[in-house]
Each structure stands twice: as structure tokens, then as C-alpha cells.
Amino acid sequence: MVERKSYSTIIGHLSLIIGVLVVVFPVWIALVVATHDNHSFMSSVTPLWFGHEGLKVFAQLFDGSAATGGISVGRMLLNSTLMALGITVGKITISILSAYAVVFFRFRGRMVAFWLIFMTLMLPVEVRIMPTFQVVADLHMLNSMQGLIIPLIASATATFLFRQFFLTVPGELVEAARIDGAGPIKFFWDILLPLSRTNIAALFVITFIYGWNQYLWPLMITTDARFTTIVVAIKHLISVPEGEVMWNQVMATTILAMLPPVFVVIVMQRFFVKGLVESEK
């Protein structure tokens, strides 16, 4: 029994180590290539250790002297952060209010409204993107932060998740709040929001990464380099019609683009676990 347990532990640790190496190795190569000049990477042997360039490429990206159209990576990171945060906050706000109205208010057509929202999941992005683009163009929101954020804040999935959670709230809790004189706003703010912190934390992580990784929509509605996001910038760095691709700059930009989502996952994971523990008490 002890030997079987020790073997399973060893196999588990080996599997974990192999998985970590598979995930980390491409990131390591990207970091190493960012410290070499472009000719070293274009040679037949890919370097596996840091080069003599050090952090020089990163400095070029931030001062705008790299092949990024004169726009610093710092500005692109700011654009992506504002876009991701705007989409995240907008999705969570609209979804939780919609679910609250559907579950706790009795009005004619509420379930029809919910199923109409839910049916939008059946429409692929390719079907919706051209009408959405036309609406944004008619509202003069091209090349603007509003145009990047507002069309992407509706979420049928988040509305469905909040609705399913609100359905588990005991009716006795609602009655007790009504007896204590809590109105709809107070009940929502003081009771439902604290109970929903686990769902909000999970959706925040998922939605932030969704907003951060947007490529097609920012590419369509932005022609002004001031609104370029970091994901679109990586594509522009790779798509060089004439001349060689500056792979050290591409890899450095990729590393920088990974940092904010990783930071959000690490920070919000702690709150997510804390919410799970508190909800079980």
C-alpha cells in the first residue's frame, strides 16, 4: 500500500513537472529571443540562453523607436487594459442587473426577454459583426474607446450564470429582507452582491482575458494608431510586406502582452478561493 502510494506520488509529480515544462518552454524561448539581435534568431540554431542585447529591445518598444509605427508599447498596453476593463465591468454590470430583473421581478414577458437574450448564443460572431460594425459607424464611434468597448459588453452567458445562481437564493431570505424593510436596491446591494462575489470573481477573470485577447473587432474599427491594442500590434509586427520580421521585438511584445492577464489571474484567484471558503461557512 505504501509502495503503491509512493509510486502514484512520483508519477503525479513527474506529470506535473512535464506539464509545467511544456507550458513554460515556449515562454522561455520568447524571453531568450527578446534578448538577442534579430540575426541570431534567424540563424539555423535557436539560442536557449540570454543574449547580449539584454533589455534593450524592451526599452525600444516603450520609447516608440521599434517597428510599431512610432507608438510605444506602453500606449498599446494602456489601450488593451482600458478595453479589457471596460468590457469586463460592462458585462458584469449588465448581466447581473438583467438576471436580477428576470429572477426577482414579476412582469409580463420577462422569460421571453431572457430566452431572447439566451438565444443570441446561437448566433456566431461572423453573423453579428457586420451589423454591429454598421451600427458603430452610424454612431460615429469608429477610432474611439467607446467603439472598442460598448459593442462587446452584452453577455448572454454571464446573464445565464447569474440567473442560475439567483434561483438558488432561498425564498425565506427574500421574505426576511422584505419584512426588515429592504427595498429592491438595498436587497440587491447589501445581500445579492456579497453573495455573488464568487461568481463575479470568476467572471471577472474570464471576461478580462476575453477582452484582452480581442483581435478581429479592434482590427476592424480602428485605423488610428493611437487606439491600437497590444494583440493587434503583435500581428502588425509579424505582417511585414517587405523586409525581415523583427522577431526579437515580436517576442518582447508577446512577453509584455502576457503579463497583465497573468497578473489578473493571480490576484483574482485569491479572491475567488476566499469567496468559496466564506460561502461554505
Rank of each mutant, 00 (worst) to 15 (best):
G275M: 09
M111I: 04
V32I: 13
Q134Y: 03
A101G: 10
K91G: 01
A257C: 05
K91T: 11
I11W: 09
L97G: 14
I185L: 14
A225R: 08
Q60S: 13
E53A: 15
L256I: 07
G69P: 01
T120K: 02
I149F: 05
F25C: 13
M119G: 12
D224L: 00
M111G: 06
P184S: 11
P194Q: 08
L195V: 05
F227N: 01
A34K: 01
M42F: 11
F162V: 12
I179T: 00
Q60W: 06
A84M: 12
R128G: 15
I266N: 09
V277K: 05
R270K: 15
K56P: 03
M122A: 05
F187Q: 00
Q269C: 03
M251G: 04
M145W: 13
M141T: 03
Q214G: 09
G211N: 02
S6K: 10
W115F: 15
T207Y: 10
S155R: 02
N79R: 13
L139M: 13
S95Y: 00
I221G: 03
I153R: 11
P260M: 03
Q134A: 09
G86R: 08
L173F: 01
I266R: 05
I200L: 09
T88N: 08
L78E: 12
V262I: 10
F25Q: 12
V267Y: 08
A182S: 06
K5R: 15
S15W: 05
V57Q: 05
E280H: 11
G147F: 04
V240H: 05
Q60E: 14
H39D: 15
F208Q: 08
G171M: 04
Q269G: 13
N143L: 11
T254L: 12
L276T: 15
V112G: 11
P241D: 07
D63E: 06
K5N: 14
A182Y: 00
L21P: 04
V45S: 12
P261Q: 03
M83E: 06
N38R: 07
A66V: 07
F105V: 15
I149K: 07
F114C: 02
K186A: 12
V103A: 07
I94T: 07
E53S: 15
P260N: 03
T68E: 02
R4P: 00
F208V: 04
D63L: 02
A59R: 09
Q146F: 01
V27H: 04
V32M: 01
T88W: 07
V245K: 05
K5H: 13
T168S: 15
L167P: 10
V250Q: 11
F166L: 08
A99W: 01
F272L: 15
L31F: 10
I87V: 14
E172G: 06
F50Q: 06
I92M: 05
A201H: 00
S44F: 15
T198W: 06
A252Q: 00
D190V: 04
I129P: 03
F263G: 12
Q269K: 07
S98R: 00
K235E: 05
P261W: 02
T120Y: 04
T46L: 14
L152C: 10
F271Y: 13
L237N: 04
P131L: 01
T222P: 04
R197D: 06
M251F: 10
V205R: 01
G171H: 03
T254H: 09
S15H: 06
